[in-house]
């Protein structure tokens, strides 16, 4: 479904992601682990087409290197930012409608119920009036409504209360049940348990990739095994 070959991303002349090879299968939840600054966000955004990179990205067998962000989105790839943007004058409901593949209020209502936000928030602006956690839930609802083939979720659980952990994993499992793939970036062990496979990124390089429990245990023992 998604294949990264020798992906290298430079920012201001400095390599942040180095020679990454990675495979995510259809319907797979793949957890990306790594300490702060290890390059997870940079890698996620490069897949989305936000940063230029060296190497190749294949999606459903097709090379997508020359495609822009929105062209990748229309192929079925989307990303939820670690810190989602706020928009003056744009109502939550209008934002969700423009994100939705099937544009109906019914779907929108269903999505906000799934992510656990009250109906009244639909009529609020996506401005400073929403709390950080609410904003992240709105983003998750938008991703859900896109019905993507690959959802890249950059720390959907950070800044969201513990109670809603189960909600977020429900959302991820729901996408999986629709045969969507999820690339999940998280620092939380509980959250990582929804994964099938996992990869540790360490100073921009893949330290290990494989079955979730194995990788998770390794991460606990040595979060950046390549570091000397």
């Amino acid at each position: 479904m998604l294949e990264l070959r020798n992906l290298t991303v430079k920012k201001d002349g400095k390599s942040i992601v180095k020679n990454v090879n990675l495979h995510v299968n259809r319907g797979e939840v793949h957890v990306l682990l790594g300490v702060n600054g290890s390059g997870k966000t940079t890698l996620a955004q490069a897949i989305m087409g936000i940063y230029p990179y060296k190497g190749n990205i294949f999606f459903e067998g097709k090379n997508i290197d020359s495609l822009s962000v929105w062209e990748r989105a229309r192929l079925g790839i989307t990303l939820a930012f670690q810190e989602p943007a706020r928009f003056e004058g744009l109502l939550v409901k209008d934002y969700l409608i423009l994100s939705a593949k099937e544009k109906s209020m019914e779907n929108v209502k269903l999505a906000i119920k799934t992510v656990g936000i009250p109906y009244s928030i639909l009529f609020e602006e996506i401005g400073e009036n929403l709390s950080g956690g609410e904003r992240k839930r709105v983003e998750l609802a938008a991703v859900l409504l896109m019905n993507p083939k690959l959802a890249i979720l950059d720390e959907p659980d950070s800044g969201v209360d513990i109670l809603s952990f189960s909600l977020i994993s429900d959302v991820i499992l729901r996408m999986k049940s629709h045969n969507s793939s999820v690339l999940l970036i998280t620092h939380s062990e509980d959250m990582a348990n929804v994964g099938d496979k996992a990869t540790i990124l360490c100073e921009g390089k893949v330290a290990i990739t494989g079955e979730r429990n194995k990788v998770k245990n390794m991460f606990k023992y040595s979060p950046c095994p390549l570091k000397r």
């Binding site: 989305m48 936000i50 822009s68 962000v69 929105w70 989105a73 229309r74 989307t78 990303l79 930012f81 989602p84 943007a85 706020r86 928009f87 423009l98 994100s99 938008a142 896109m146």
Partner: peptide
């Protein structure tokens, strides 16, 4: 950031 967010939803620039 606003621009990129909307483009990840499939809107053109």
């Amino acid at each position: 950031k606003q621009l990129l967010t909307l483009m990840t939803r499939g809107l053109t620039q």
